[in-house]
Amino acid sequence: MEIIVNGENRQAPPGITVAAYVATLGFDPETVVVELDGQILGRLEYDERRLAEGAELELIRFVGGG
């Protein structure tokens, strides 16, 4: 199915969880802030929420150093 990730069209397996999708990008989900369809997700929601056709994801990913 098609979803929108940071403004770009991407393919994702139907029904995949947010956490699993983020992991497919090679990111530790704990290092990513997720907005799904305009709503910032709490950390516990990453494993619960599933992506639907046309879902709009904004991912803000952090790398270490400070």
Binding site: D28, E30, T31, V32, V33, I40, L41, G42, R43, I60, R61, F62, V63, G64, G65, G66
Partner: peptide, 30 residues
């Protein structure tokens, strides 16, 4: 913060629980 998990945690917390506060984070400076 130094650690990326804390960076994400902080932004998530600010966006969901401190919507009035200004926020300036950092990522990618090594």
């Amino acid at each position: 913060f130094d650690g990326p998990r804390m960076k994400a945690l902080a932004l998530r917390t600010a966006l969901t629980r401190m919507p009035e506060a200004g926020y300036v984070g950092a990522s990618g400076l090594a």
